[in-house]
Design a protein around this nucleic acid. Structure first.
Length: 495
RNA sequence: UGCCUGGUAGCUCAGUGGUAGAGCAGGUGACUGUUAAUCACUUGGUCGCUGGUUCGAUCCCAGCCCGGGCAGCCA
């Protein structure tokens, strides 16, 4: 089918190919609207400018009105001057906070202080009113209230900034790995592995819960379910990523992850995004190096490309933010074995709510002490007791009897705690089978995972970075519910 | 899931055993190249729900619902 020729309604003289929708050609649709960000960064006045966005606040004078227009392209708004003599001036009364408007006018140097540029309107139109019930006001909202209006909170300064940084950070994740020739792998969202040990899973089924089919024993017959077996939402793409790492060498995943734990904390969500690199021919030290380089890359990228938004966080969310980020960039992360960490904790002179003994998991208070008080810097703890870690982690060889460890690592950061968890994987078939036995896992459920060790096995390692936790660290926002567009937590799935 | 804490106007909060206030938002007016503008006036409430104690409960008690924090689980 050939492209139709059509008139563009934005410019009647324009006869163009590829009309966009039925109204405007691509050129006139995209070119005619100037984003606020571009207008604010302008180096010269402009005789004609066209803007569209939402009213943040309006200040009326006798002979004219000021409107602060924001379109989400950046934190700052652009001041619009509408003279009372304009034919459109009657529209101004309808342009309350939250209304969508469009303006044709001139970009001129501002006569007032506080901004370089402003727009003198020649044509002003209210597209959609927002009446007095519009919940977002010019000041004084708590994060808890804004969570209840997640459909409107992106229009606030804070959440606009958070989600611009989130978008940029997602882009930076791909840039980092693509520049290193890592291959992006889409691991499945629906999985049948129900014993990965990473926590409770959400069930996926099309069976009628009221009258499920039964087998001869009177139990629910999962063979009749959609996939012919029990299925769940994934808690990790790691095992599948290992498949691709043992073929394409360096891979990463970046996708949603689901955990059905009944967690009520500021750093847990039921649905979150995780980045999981998996690297063939890599040991634990290489894994720790990669994790540190990755975290620093993301921080540096945000400080370079989201400077205005980070300044906003530094001003209104966490005054220490910028100094902390710069400090983290400049210093090598500390590294500390689990055994050394236990010694540090026991020699700290602190009274712990949970006493520290070799073999126990480090508690939140211990992790916070290490990163916030002892090292005062991000710290990677490695070589954990075998019994408290997952079956697939590589057994260390030079262990003291009774103190067997695996090549695991956790990256702890001040204020959040664990942001990365990873390990060198057990690539030796017999040791892996022993690990599965230790964790009471059935080999038949992992036949393909074991095959990777039967055919051309290689040392390999990887980790998982919690994307939201990274965002919390970079923005200073203290609750995970406020760095994800629509938070899913126990009891909450609105929007 | 355990422990702690909160629920009063659209929002942020104060308050009292005798059915309630402030600031902001909204409305009206004034004023001003304004910047979360300012000033004056003004509309606005089943005090989370249910039950109990009491002459009387928003306040005291119990249960429930919802929010938040911490812990565990982890990223």
């Amino acid at each position: 089918m050939g492209l139709a020729r059509a008139s563009c309604r934005r410019a009647e003289s324009c006869i163009c190919l590829q009309p966009l929708g039925s109204f405007f050609c691509r050129k006139h649709y995209l070119m005619s609207r100037t984003l606020v960000k571009a207008a604010l960064n302008s180096t010269a006045p402009a005789d004609t400018i066209f803007l569209q966005g939402w009213v943040r606040t309006r200040r009326d004078a006798k002979a004219f009105s000021f409107i602060e227009l924001n379109d989400g392209s950046c934190l700052k708004g652009l001041q619009i001057i509408i003279d009372a003599t304009l034919p459109d001036y009657a529209q101004v009364a309808r342009a309350g906070t939250g209304a969508s408007v469009e303006v044709h006018g001139k970009l001129v140097a501002s006569k007032g202080g506080g901004q370089k540029w402003e727009v003198v309107a020649e044509k002003f139109t209210v597209l959609g009113e927002a009446d007095a019930t519009y919940p977002l006001q010019k000041k004084g909202h708590t994060l808890e209230f804004l969570r209840e209006i997640a459909h409107l909170r992106p229009r606030s300064n804070l959440f606009g900034a958070v989600f611009r940084v989130r978008s940029r950070l997602a882009y930076a994740v791909h840039q980092f790995f693509q520049a290193k020739e890592f291959c992006y792998v889409h691991t499945p969202i629906i999985t049948a592995s129900d014993a990965e040990g990473a926590g409770d899973m959400f069930r996926v089924t099309t069976l009628d819960l009221a009258t499920p089919p039964k087998n001869e024993q009177g139990e629910i017959d999962n063979r009749q379910d959609f996939f012919g077996k029990k299925t769940f939402l994934t808690v990790s793409g790691q095992l599948e990523a290992e498949i691709f790492a043992t073929a394409l060498s360096n891979v990463y995943t970046f996708g949603p992850t689901f955990r059905a734990e009944n967690s009520h904390t500021s750093r847990h969500a039921s649905e979150f995004w995780m980045i999981e690199p998996e690297v063939a021919f890599c040991d634990l030290a290489g894994n720790m190096d990669l994790a540190e380089e990755f975290v620093k890359y993301l921080i540096r990228d945000a400080t370079q490309h989201c400077a205005a938004d980070l300044e906003f966080f530094s001003k209104f969310v966490d005054p220490e933010l910028l100094t902390r980020l710069n400090f983290v960039l400049e210093r090598p992360f500390q590294r500390c074995s689990y055994t050394a960490a236990v010694e540090i904790l026991n020699n700290s002179g602190k009274i712990w709510e949970h006493p520290v003994a070799w073999g126990d998991n480090l508690q939140s208070e211990h992790e916070r002490y290490l990163t916030e008080e002892h090292f005062k810097c991000p710290v990677t703890v490695y070589n954990y007791p075998r019994a408290i870690k997952a079956f697939y982690m590589r057994q260390n060889e030079d262990c003291v009897a009774g103190r067997e460890t695996v090549a695991a690592m956790d990256l702890l950061v001040p204020g959040i705690g664990e942001i990365i968890g990873g390990s060198q994987r057990e690539e030796r078939l017999e040791q892996l089978r022993a690990g599965m036995s230790l964790h009471h896992l059935e080999e038949k459920n992992y036949w393909w995972y074991l095959d990777l060790r039967r055919y051309g096995t290689v040392p390999h390692a990887g980790f998982g970075l919690g994307f939201e936790r990274m965002l919390m660290f970079i923005t200073g926002v203290a609750n995970i519910r406020d760095v994800i567009p629509f938070a899913r937590t126990p009891g909450t799935a609105e929007f």
